[in-house]
Design a protein around this nucleic acid. Structure first.
Lengths: 354, 354
DNA sequence: ATCACACATGGGAGCGCTCCCACAGTACCT
DNA sequence: AGGTACTGTGGGAGCGCTCCCATGTGTGAT
């Protein structure tokens, strides 16, 4: 290996000042400077002032590597996105999450590491990275049910917060939207508008959130005393094409339907196309409600009623929970669920489609 | 300050193994393990095998903080984007750059830190971060001429590579597209198609790249022996609205023009609108060529001829140059420009607009 | 056989911090 | 007067590595 000739590069002469140098300048001990820099209250006012002056004069900035080594913390958290890059940039979801996380971190000294894990090579690199003690905690967004990352993090005993649960009894910390209530409000809204034969197009049902949205649909029907008709439930996969197929199926099976609750806006786009092709008008013949309140919802013709969920706030909450987990560090098994598992409210945004 | 109770968390019992433990297990010294882990050739085959076995058995992963402290390097580089988040996610440019950087880093142990600096608060946080010795080098994209970041990095003696120059004699390392040749090829193409009164809409002329594109325009005219007519040059600002204004101006000043070279696709969209409003057909009345070959170029009606530049490759090259700078660490002033300043070729993509 | 020189190896020193123990000083009780 | 308690402070130990020097051990030339 090539000798890097780095040693000494940043030392004594002209390099970054060290704690010791600040201490010498301020005429105090190393420990005292450390206390001042870290905001410990156990320092007298005069001493603090003297140290702060020395810090300013020398332009002292703590060496993070040294701090990380000595304190066994890094003051950095990772936002891990197990998706290919293109999706990361394409979906507004991630942009909102990043904004929320950034906002929550703004008042902190924590640094955010954005890690996009698109393939297995990158995944194993991340695993090595995490094992190398490089972050204090991990925010895991868009995690699939079979992803090994959460398990890995548990093994490494690194605090983690998920966006969304993987199942009803998710043991890890998470922040999730209230999908059940969101779906319920959508379907109740359709009922309130006089619809009686309400179908639903679901997402991939092994995704927990999709299951919740279906549950909400059923609850709303039950609450209104409407019969549950399994012929009105068409499973799909969150894609536009899936929405097309499911809508086609529904029209064949239950031509008399007068409303559809679609579990994502993207699928609603597909459903809308099929309705137009079959000559059904929206909302007169068939009312349509989507989920996600994404940008396409506005742009549809007619604009799509949709269930909004606060993505940016999810980012903020996830960060808050993670910072708490980090501060409260103790064996993961002794932590309860309180305050570590958070449901955020959803909100129906009525538009012309219903 | 609250006692964190962290110390010991990752030590002896059950925690991450250390070099020393691997050494004990393999029956060798600490130095030898370090050599094996870092791929030094000065280790015998048997010893290497024994150490590697011990590493595997214990699941040893080097502690990066310790390594960073001891070796004064971090094995991480930052990609700094001085833009608001929304632009970062909106512009395909950044996604391509990130892809290129990721590709170049794929075979490395280097970690990428994505840092979006949207406001001054974040900028000063970044400054503190960089001063804290946290990265070995910085990739600076989309840097504005008056941004203080490059200077800061020079002062901190942190290797940096820019995407694009700030001026003709950019002293820092950079990777840039050949804007002059790109513009020249666009205008030569128009000349070859028989156009004789060729106007241009420029970008913000205090951006060096915009200046280059204007130079290329002039060179192509001169090479063809066409007169330079300053009335055919309309300065704009890279926005769609700017393109509209400039096109309007040009049509008033030189109604006889038969072609326009527009220094960005976005401005070309604006120009196209004005031409349509004035009843000028494209390409019959006026031929149009853009720059950037962005997604909108395909979608225009007619599809826009545009100058392509290899953004992903820029990301790759920037990374390559930065890694070389880091490996070759020595006083910045003694480094020449060779291999540190790279021009990548552009390519004209002819479409129906010309 | 002797010297010279390579190569492989062990381990000390030290990177710049945090943590914590020890100690001095002061204050307030008994 | 001594005891206890607390506060502010200095500095040792140690985090887990890398770098390098010293030491061994083997090889070939003399």
């Amino acid at each position: 290996m090539v000798t890097r000739g780095i040693r000494g590069q940043g030392s004594r002469s002209g390099g970054r000042p060290t704690l010791e140098e600040v201490a010498a300048r301020a005429g105090v001990g190393r420990g005292t400077v450390s206390r001042v820099v870290n905001g410990s209250p156990r320092v007298s006012e005069e001493t603090r002032a003297a140290v702060e002056a020395a810090v300013d004069e020398l332009g002292y900035v703590p060496n993070r590597a040294a701090r990380a080594l000595a304190a066994n913390r890094t003051d950095a958290i990772a936002l891990v996105v197990p998706e290919v890059e293109s999706r990361f940039f394409a979906e507004p979801y991630f942009s909102d999450i990043v904004r929320g996380v950034g906002a929550a971190l703004d008042s902190t000294e924590m640094q955010l590491l954005l890690t996009i894990v698109g393939n297995d090579r990158e995944r194993s690199r991340l695993a090595r990275y995490l094992a190398g003690n490089r972050v204090d905690g991990v925010l895991l967004v868009s995690v699939h049910a079979d992803d090994p990352l959460p398990e890995l993090l548990v093994q490494l005993d690194i605090p983690v917060v998920l966006s969304g649960r993987r199942s009803e009894n998710e043991p890890l910390a998470w922040v999730d939207a209230d999908n059940v209530a969101g779906a319920r409000s959508a379907v109740s809204h359709l009922i309130a508008r006089g619809r009686r034969t309400i179908a639903t197009i679901t997402g991939l049902l092994d995704v927990y959130g999709a299951q919740c949205r279906l549950d909400g649909y059923r609850q709303a029907l039950a609450a209104a005393g409407l019969d549950a008709d399994e012929g009105l439930v068409a499973p799909a996969d969150f894609t536009e094409e899936g929405g097309r197929r499911a809508m086609t199926e529904l029209l064949e099976r239950r031509p008399q339907l007068d409303a559809v609750f679609v579990a994502s806006d993207v699928m609603a786009v597909g459903a809308r196309q099929v309705l137009r092709e079959r000559g059904r008008t929206v909302p007169d013949d068939v009312a349509l409600v989507g989920f996600d309140d994404s940008a396409i919802a506005h742009r549809m013709d007619p604009p799509l009623t949709s269930v909004h969920w606060p993505i940016e706030e999810m980012g903020r909450e996830m960060t808050r929970v993670l910072l708490a987990e980090i501060a409260d560090r103790r064996p993961a098994t002794t932590r309860g669920t309180k305050g570590r598992q958070i449901v955020l409210p959803t909100k129906l945004i009525p538009r012309a489609s219903s």
